[in-house]
Design a protein around this nucleic acid. Structure first.
Length: 884
RNA sequence: GGUUUAAUAGCUCAGUUGGUUCAGAGCACCUGCCUUACAAGCAGGGGGUCCAAGGUUCGAAUCCUUGUUAGACCA
C-alpha cells in the first residue's frame, strides 16, 4: 500500500543520484542538435543558498529542462565567483582564530590559506543547488580563480591595456577604511541618516579686515557636516553674486584652532541659500571640493590614512579615528568659541556594501577602464532588441545608466584575486605583460634595456575587481578567451537566456554585454530574464538582521524540493518582487500531494477486457483537447518568459480538469474494474501531464513516470520528448462547458436545499435540441448523482428549475419547493438578462458600431442577443408558472 | 532634486492590438460534507466606483492630459 501523502524526502535523493549516474545533465557539442545554453550567475564562493538563489535557479532549471526535453542540446554551466572582499574577510577571520594576523604573513602564505579555505568551505552552495534539483552539467563547473579562468582575465587586461583602454590615474575614489580598498560606485550603498550641520566661525585675517571699521565683521561662518576635516581646508568659497560677502573677496581667513591662513575664493558652484552661503573647500576629502580645487589650483591636504585615522598632516588629533576626532574637535571648537550652532540635518552617508564601513572619498592611484567607446555596442544592441530584457521596463534604466557611464575603477587593494599584470621598473616605468618574464622581455627589447633582470621588476600589488573577472563569464567558462576557436565556444556561444536579479543589471549584465561585443564581436546571450527580489510578506527585503529569511534547506526538507520550486513560481511574475510567504510552499506541497493521489487512484485500478463506454470515449477526447489547448497556452507563455503563468495553466489543468473532472467521469464504482481502452488512454494522459510538469517538479514527475509503465534501465523523464500540441475540438469543449454548468447548478441546489450528496435526484430537461445532451447525459447523471434524465415538453409543476442556454432543467422534489425563493432567483436572472439584452441592442442599433467594429464581433453580438432572448422567454414562462 | 515604473477583490497579481456582461485567477473568507485517490481533501458561495478628475472614441481597466500616492534607479 503506498502512502496517502506524498513523501518527497524518500525519493528526491534517489532520483538526483540516478540522473547523475546516467549523465543526463551532461552536454557536449552535437552538430545534429540545436544548442541551448545558460550560464549560472555564479554565486559567491562564500555563499549559502538563500531565497533569491532558489527562485533564480529554479527558473533556470525550468528553462533548461524544458529545452532538454524539446530535443535541444541543453547545457547549464555552474560555478562560483571568487568574491575578493567577502572571501578575503572570511580568510582573515579564519587566520585570526588561529592567532595569525594578515599583516604578519606574506602574500604567498595568505593566498595559500585562502585556497585552503576555499577547498574546505567554498562552494557549499553548489551542493545545495543539487538539493533543489538543479540540472547543471557539473563537469563544467567553473571558478573565477581557476587557472584557465585566471589566465583569461589577465589576457583581457593586457589586451585592453594594449588597445589603450586601460589607464592608471589619480582619482577620487570611494575608499573603504575597514577593507582598506577602493570600491566602485556600484559597491557603495547610500543610507539616509540624521546628521548634524555645524556652523563654525573662521576669523578673517586682521591686517586685511582693518580697513578702518572697528566693528567690521571679523568672522565668516561656514556650515559643514564634517568639522574634523577643517585641518584639510584649502580655501573658503562664496558665490561671486552673493552680496553679503562681496567685501570678503580676495581676503584670507584663519582656520580655527590651527590658525593656518587660507584664501577666500569665489565660484558660482556655491549655493547661496544652503547653510550660510560660505563653503569650506577641502579638496582631499570631497569629490566636488576636489574638482573645485583643481579649477582654482588649490593644494590637496590629505589628513587621513588608509584606515580612516588622522595623520601628521592634520597637525591636531593625530592618530585619532575620524569619528573620535569629530567629537573632540566639536568640543574644542565650542570651548574656543568658534562653534556658533548645530543644526539637525537629514543627509545621506555612503557605506561599503561588503564591510558596512562609512566610505571616505579619497584620492588614490588606481587603474581604470575607459567605458565610453566600449559601452556603445552594448547600449545599441539592447535598445534595438538584439538582446531582449524581460520585463522590458528595464530598458529605460539600462539606457540611462549606459548613457552616463563612468570609467570603471578596476583595481582593489586586496590579495585574493587576479593580480594586476603591471610591472614597474625602478624609474617608475610601467610594463604591462602577461607574466614577469614577458614583461622583462618587453622591457629589454622595446626599451633596449638588456641589462635588466627579473629582480628589477616589481609587480603591482593590487588585484582586479571581482566583476572584472565575472564580466567574462559567458565566454571564459567555455575557454573562449584563451582559445577563441574551440569547439565549445563555437557551439554554445552566444548563450540563450540569462536569469538574474535587476540589482546587478549594471554590475554584471551590462558588463557581460560589453565584454561579449568586445571580445567575441557578438552578444553574450539573447534574452535576459530579470527576476524580482524575494521579500517577506510585509514587503521587507530578506536580511540577516531582520531574521526574516527562512532557511532554504529547511524549506526543502519540510515541503519537498518540488513543493518549494512550484511555490516560489506561483507568485513570481517577471520583474516583480516576490512577497514570500510559507503558504506558497504549502500550496506547492499540496499540489504534489494532489498529483500523488491521482496516481494512487489510477494505480489501484484493475483492468478488464470489457468494451469502452461512450461517455468515457468522449471524456478522453475532451481531455485531450484540453491538454492541447493548455500546451498552446504554455508555449505562448514561454515565448514571453511568463514562467509563472505557464505553471498556473498547468496547475489549473491538472487539478480542476484532470482530477476534479476527468477522473471523476471515468472513475469506476468502488472495487469495480475499468475497461482497458480507458485505462490505457488514462495512463497516456497521465504520462503527458508528468512530462508537462517535469520542468517545474522534476522529482515527483520522475517517480510517477517511472511507475506508470515499464522503463528501460537508465531511462528518465528528463530525456523524453516534451508533449507537442494537437487538434483542439472547440465544439466538444463548449459542450462540456455546458455540461459542467448544468452539474454545478444541480450541486448548488443540493447545497442550498441541504440535501446529502448520497440522495439521487430526479432531473428533467425541456429542450428543443435533445441531441445536445445525448452523449453527455450519462456524465451529468454520474457527476450530479441524478436518476436517468427524462425529457419533457412542458414545465414540471412544483419543481425547482434553472435555465442553461435556452434549456430549462427541473428537479422535482415533491413539495420541497419554496415558491418565494424560486421566484426571487428567477426574477434576478431575468433582470440580468434584460439588462444584457438592452445593452446589446443598443450596441447593435448604433450604426457606427456596426460600421466600425470587426464583422465577427458584430456577428458574435447578434448571437448573444438571440441567446439572451430565448433565455428571457424561458424565464418569463417560468415566472408565470410559479405565480400560477 | 532628476529619471522611471506602477496603482484592479481582504492579500499577491493577470487582464496581450481599445471590443464577449470584462471586471478575472490564486490565496484568504463564509456554508455544508471525514463520500472508498486525496481534510495537504470535496461541493457550493460572497466579495471590486479598475487611485482621482478631465479628454479622445460608436465603445476605455486598457489610449492622452493633469493631479495624488507608492516603489526603483541616479544625484
Amino acid at each position: 500500500m503506498i502512502s496517502k501523502t506524498y513523501a518527497p524526502q524518500e525519493i528526491e535523493a534517489k532520483w538526483y543520484q540516478y540522473w547523475l549516474d546516467n549523465k543526463h545533465f551532461a552536454s557536449k557539442p552535437n552538430p545534429d542538435k540545436e544548442p541551448y545554453s545558460i550560464v549560472i550567475p555564479p554565486p559567491n564562493v562564500t555563499g549559502i543558498l538563500h531565497m533569491g538563489h532558489m527562485l533564480n535557479n529554479t527558473i533556470q532549471d525550468v528553462l533548461i529542462r524544458k529545452a532538454r526535453m524539446e530535443g535541444k542540446e541543453a547545457c547549464w554551466v555552474p560555478g562560483t565567483d571568487h568574491a575578493s572582499i567577502a572571501t578575503e574577510a572570511k580568510v582573515v577571520a579564519m587566520l585570526k582564530e588561529r592567532g595569525i594576523e594578515k599583516k604578519d604573513i606574506s602574500r604567498e602564505e595568505f593566498l595559500a590559506y585562502a585556497h585552503e579555505w576555499k577547498d574546505k568551505y567554498g562552494g557549499i552552495i553548489l551542493d545545495q543547488l543539487k538539493k533543489l534539483g538543479a540540472s547543471c552539467d557539473w563537469d563544467r563547473t567553473n571558478f573565477t580563480m581557476d587557472a584557465h579562468y585566471y589566465e583569461s582575465v589577465i589576457d583581457v587586461f593586457v589586451d585592453l591595456y594594449n588597445k589603450g583602454n586601460i589607464y592608471r590615474g589619480v582619482r577620487m575614489v570611494n575608499w573603504d577604511p575597514l577593507g582598506k580598498t577602493a570600491l566602485s560606485d556600484e559597491e557603495v550603498i547610500e543610507k539616509d541618516i540624521q546628521a548634524k550641520l555645524y556652523y563654525i566661525n573662521y576669523a578673517v585675517s586682521s591686517q586685511q579686515s582693518a580697513v578702518g571699521e572697528e566693528t567690521a565683521e571679523s568672522y565668516v561662518t561656514i556650515a559643514t557636516t564634517r568639522p574634523e576635516t577643517i585641518m584639510a581646508d584649502a580655501a573658503i568659497c562664496v558665490n561671486p553674486n552673493d552680496e553679503r560677502y562681496i567685501h570678503l573677496h580676495g581676503k584670507t581667513v584663519k582656520i580655527p584652532l590651527l590658525n593656518r591662513e587660507i584664501p577666500i575664493i569665489t565660484d558660482e558652484y556655491v549655493t547661496m541659500d544652503f547653510g550660510t552661503g560660505c563653503l569650506k573647500v577641502t579638496p582631499a576629502h570631497d569629490l566636488n571640493d576636489y574638482e573645485l580645487g583643481i579649477k582654482h589650483k588649490l593644494p590637496v591636504i590629505d589628513i587621513l590614512d588608509d584606515g580612516g585615522f588622522l595623520n601628521e598632516k592634520a597637525v591636531l588629533y593625530v592618530g585619532q579615528d575620524r569619528f573620535a576626532a569629530r567629537r573632540n574637535i566639536v568640543k574644542d571648537l565650542e570651548e574656543s568659541g568658534h562653534l556658533v550652532k548645530m543644526e539637525e540635518y537629514k543627509s545621506i552617508v555612503k557605506t561599503s556594501e561588503r564591510t558596512g564601513a562609512v566610505i571616505e572619498p579619497k584620492l588614490s592611484l588606481q587603474w581604470f577602464l575607459k567605458m565610453e567607446e566600449l559601452s556603445k555596442p552594448a547600449l545599441e544592441n539592447v535598445m534595438n532588441d538584439t538582446i531582449k530584457l524581460y520585463p522590458s521596463k528595464f530598458k529605460n534604466t539600462y539606457r540611462s545608466w549606459m548613457e552616463n557611464v563612468h570609467d570603471w575603477c578596476i583595481s582593489r587593494q586586496l590579495w585574493w584575486g587576479q593580480q594586476i599584470p603591471a610591472f614597474y621598473l625602478q624609474d617608475g616605468t610601467i610594463i604591462v605583460a602577461k607574466t614577469k618574464r614577458e614583461a622583462l622581455h618587453k622591457a629589454q627589447h622595446e626599451r633596449l634595456l638588456f641589462a635588466l633582470t627579473e629582480e628589477d621588476l616589481t609587480q603591482d600589488p593590487d588585484v582586479l575587481d571581482t566583476w572584472f573577472s565575472s564580466w567574462l563569464w559567458p565566454i571564459a567558462t567555455f575557454d573562449g578567451i584563451r582559445n577563441p576557436d574551440n569547439e565549445d565556444i563555437n557551439y554554445y556561444y552566444p548563450t540563450n537566456d540569462l536569469v538574474t536579479g535587476p540589482d546587478i543589471l549594471f554590475f554584471w549584465v551590462a558588463r557581460m554585454i560589453i565584454a561579449g561585443y568586445e571580445f567575441k564581436g557578438k552578444l553574450p546571450f539573447e534574452n535576459v530574464y530579470l527576476t524580482g527580489i524575494v521579500r517577506d510578506k510585509q514587503g521587507r527585503k530578506m536580511s540577516k538582521q531582520l531574521g526574516n529569511s527562512p532557511d532554504a534547506l529547511e524549506l526543502i526538507e519540510r515541503f519537498g524540493a518540488d513543493g518549494v520550486r512550484s511555490g516560489l513560481l506561483f507568485s513570481a511574475p517577471a520583474g516583480n518582487d516576490l512577497l514570500f510567504d510559507e503558504k506558497l510552499c504549502e500550496q506547492g506541497r499540496n499540489f504534489c500531494n494532489k498529483i500523488w493521489n491521482a496516481y494512487r487512484l489510477v494505480e489501484g485500478w484493475t483492468v478488464t477486457e470489457q468494451p469502452i463506454i461512450e461517455s468515457n470515449k468522449l471524456a478522453i477526447d475532451w481531455f485531450n483537447s484540453r491538454i492541447n489547448q493548455t500546451i498552446k497556452e504554455i508555449q505562448d507563455h514561454f515565448t514571453k518568459f511568463r514562467i509563472s503563468d505557464a505553471l498556473l495553466s498547468l496547475y489549473n489543468l491538472v487539478w480542476n480538469d484532470f482530477c476534479s473532472k476527468y477522473l471523476e467521469i471515468i472513475k469506476p464504482d468502488f472495487e469495480q474494474p475499468i475497461d482497458k481502452a480507458t485505462f490505457n488512454s488514462t495512463i497516456e494522459i497521465f504520462e503527458k501531464l508528468t512530462c508537462l510538469l517535469h520542468p517545474y517538479m522534476p522529482f515527483i514527475t520522475e517517480e510517477i513516470w517511472q511507475a506508470l509503465a515499464e522503463r528501460n534501465e537508465g531511462e528518465s523523464i528528463c530525456r523524453t520528448e516534451f508533449p507537442q500540441g494537437g487538434d483542439i475540438n472547440t465544439e466538444l469543449l463548449a459542450s462540456f462547458d455546458v455540461m459542467f454548468e448544468v452539474v454545478s447548478k444541480i450541486r448548488e441546489i443540493r447545497n442550498v436545499k441541504q440535501l446529502s450528496p448520497k440522495i439521487v435526484l430526479p432531473l428533467a430537461i425541456k429542450t428543443d435540441n435533445k441531441a445536445r445532451y445525448e452523449n453527455i447525459e450519462s456524465i451529468i447523471e454520474k457527476l450530479a448523482n441524478t436518476e436517468t434524465i427524462s425529457y419533457v415538453s412542458d414545465k414540471v409543476d412544483g419543481a425547482i428549475s434553472f435555465v442553461v442556454k435556452a434549456d430549462e432543467f427541473f428537479i422535482n422534489l415533491e413539495g420541497e419547493i419554496d415558491v418565494e425563493a424560486e421566484l426571487e432567483t428567477a426574477q434576478k436572472d431575468l433582470e440580468y438578462n434584460l439588462g444584457f439584452k438592452k445593452a446589446t441592442e443598443a450596441k447593435l442599433s448604433n450604426e457606427r458600431f456596426v460600421a466600425n467594429a470587426k464583422p465577427e464581433l458584430v456577428e458574435r453580438e447578434r448571437q448573444k442577443l438571440a441567446d439572451a432572448e430565448s433565455k428571457i422567454k424561458a424565464l418569463e414562462e417560468r415566472i408565470a408558472s410559479l405565480k400560477g
